[in-house]
Design a protein around this nucleic acid. Structure first.
Lengths: 355, 355
DNA sequence: CTGTTAGCGCCTTCAG
DNA sequence: CTGAAGGCGCTAACAG
């Protein structure tokens, strides 16, 4: 059970295979200061003369000293660990998020643990509660659709743990990061309108995601601004999955008259719509234009390449994490940051076919 | 800096908003036993009468007691944390791995931290070394290509930290999980041969991945068994990416005479090959058959759907993690487990075209 | 600006 | 089978 690298204080003169990890006490002795001063230097606290600071740093380097996270955690009442809570989003999206979060964490010597959370499951809130009790976490990052679960957010507020939301539906009073999805979709659909499209279908996102609402709202705004009537028949449900896009695509493309363009609420579904078009012998974009949202890799891997909205997911995750770390450092810090989007016009959209 | 939920030992009679987390001492008092006995029960150690055990468990439940991981870690010299080391694999693959690892971890009350490692970077081994010093990790999970970096593996051995490998090239003396990729590819290529193909191209995997070797070897074995000559011209490099598949596909399909079938070392590259075929006006599978490896989602999302090898990545990750946890529990435990594969025959492969 | 003194909450040893 | 004492390595509070 015990690794044995333990009792070897100073009774072993030979350069044994186990260099007996230096402790803060050793560093203090080597630098000729007190433990607390070493601690101050390590944590970049003020109140240490520059010369002393340097001497301590040298001793740290010489002894190859690394503070023990467990001890730090126990004494300092924090873990240097944040958790990424997620619920079954697309792998591409989640990996972008992971990369962004980890990047930000590394810079601040934080670790990130992955924590799946089934937001529809009955005991979801309790499960998160147990997690918070069972692991010393300094903060949480939430991804959609967890960002839109009021029960969960309320509980987290109640427990007082700092958390950041990536792309939540409600932004007020939260910290994290958002992108103006309404405006982005609005521009995208306006682009379709400019190409001459008048019957524009929409495959909605997963009903649990606030993003689905924003995207639908953007679609409606664009129609209204273009003086087009909102036709409920042209709006069909989806779940952000390829298969749901395929099914909804079949449905939309069977309507009479057929829509000449379809905006799917994400790229996976847009790919499904394109497959539906292909099944029905419809050419994209000659007979039907298709566009998506997110600019995931699939957008470039399908043919023709997909017109979509570029969302800087990785940067968003990084920014959200920085906000979280700020809030961990001092409660009250951290805010909701807005990120820019960019239309990616590619080959899946083109002029509306003549009547 | 201080949350304030701290000093409230027992001087606050009202049911305040901060229930002052129970400590092991409280549980001991409630159960009428010593702290050590509680500890024994919590860690499932022997030497406690069944009745006592029950009483303790009741007290734990009543007080909603959760041991503090930091304290446990400090005193017990372990962290209940493992890290997943990865280097830029495909998001789909990695997320499957994450899911499997997390599943196995949850069951054993372990947490998993994500740790990207740039295996080509100069200071890679040192970076991992620093990681091991800076975070108390009980063990590591390695994914390809880290599993094939001798420098890294040697250092880990030297530090004596337990680790499990997922799909390493060399299996002897390691713990983890593998799949017989050689045999799988052999069967896949034999399937092409059975369809009448005689000129079969191969897009290789990333040169740093041992899997690329196994897959090439399987290809060669299948050719040999079929009495076909190995033609180096038909084997082109790749990097496991869509783009590399596209490029290599163009190259292979420009050869005269053209191969009638192409085995790409993974699905992403196979999708690239199919795109190359489509660019050149070649129909799949009528004029050229294409197959891949992994059975990632893209295999079903492209048209026609891809013939490939199903690899139970999630289960593999889970099994590897269980082996790791066993090795953590007692050094010497844990082994290399072989997992089954299954051919997925779909629409991208068909009879060889007549000459 | 710096040092001293007490724990953080648990586990380990050794005694009963 | 059970308990009491001590320490894991660090930081918070308070002195100086």
């Amino acid at each position: 059970m015990n690794a044995g690298a333990h009792d070897g204080r100073q009774q072993d003169p030979r350069p044994g295979p186990v260099p007996a990890r230096a402790r803060i006490e050793d560093v203090a002795a080597a630098a000729g200061v007190s433990m607390k001063t070493v601690s101050r230097v390590l944590n970049n606290e003020p109140g240490v003369r520059e010369a002393t600071r340097l001497r301590v740093r040298e001793a740290v380097a010489a002894l190859n000293y690394r503070p023990d996270p467990s001890a730090r955690s126990l004494a300092g009442n924090r873990s240097y660990l944040v958790a990424l809570l997620y619920d079954n989003p697309s792998p591409n999206y989640l990996m972008e998020v992971v990369t962004g979060v980890v990047d930000a964490c590394e810079a601040h010597h934080y670790g990130m643990v992955m924590q799946p959370v089934a937001h529809r499951a009955p005991g979801c809130v309790e499960a998160v509660d147990a997690l918070l009790s069972g692991a010393r976490l300094d903060g949480l990052i939430l991804t959609p659709p967890l960002t839109d679960s009021d029960a969960l957010l309320d509980r987290l507020d109640q427990r007082g743990i700092p958390f950041a939301c990536i792309s939540p539906y409600k932004r007020e009073g939260r910290i994290g990061v958002t992108l103006d999805e309404h405006d982005a979709v609005c521009e995208l659909v306006a682009h379709l309108v400019a190409l001459g499209h008048r019957r524009i279908g929409h495959v909605r996102g997963h009903p649990d995601h606030g993003a689905s609402e924003w995207r639908l709202a953007g679609y409606r705004t664009a129609l209204r601004r273009a003086g087009l009537r909102y036709d409920p028949e042209l709006v069909v449900p989806g779940e952000f999955s390829f298969d749901s896009g395929l099914e909804s695509g079949r449905r939309l493309l069977s309507l009479q008259p057929r829509p000449t363009a379809i905006f799917a609420a994400n790229d996976d579904m847009a790919a499904g719509v394109m497959r539906a078009a292909s099944e029905m012998g419809l050419r994209v974009p000659a007979e039907v234009s298709v566009c998506g949202f997110d600019n995931t890799p699939i957008a470039k891997h399908i043919f023709p390449q997909l017109t979509t909205v570029q969302q800087p997911t990785r940067d968003m995750a990084q920014v959200a994490t920085m906000q979280l770390l700020a809030a961990i450092r001092d409660r009250g810090a951290g805010s909701m940051v807005h990120m820019p989007y960019a239309l990616q016009l590619r080959d899946s959209t083109g002029p509306a076919p003549p009547d």
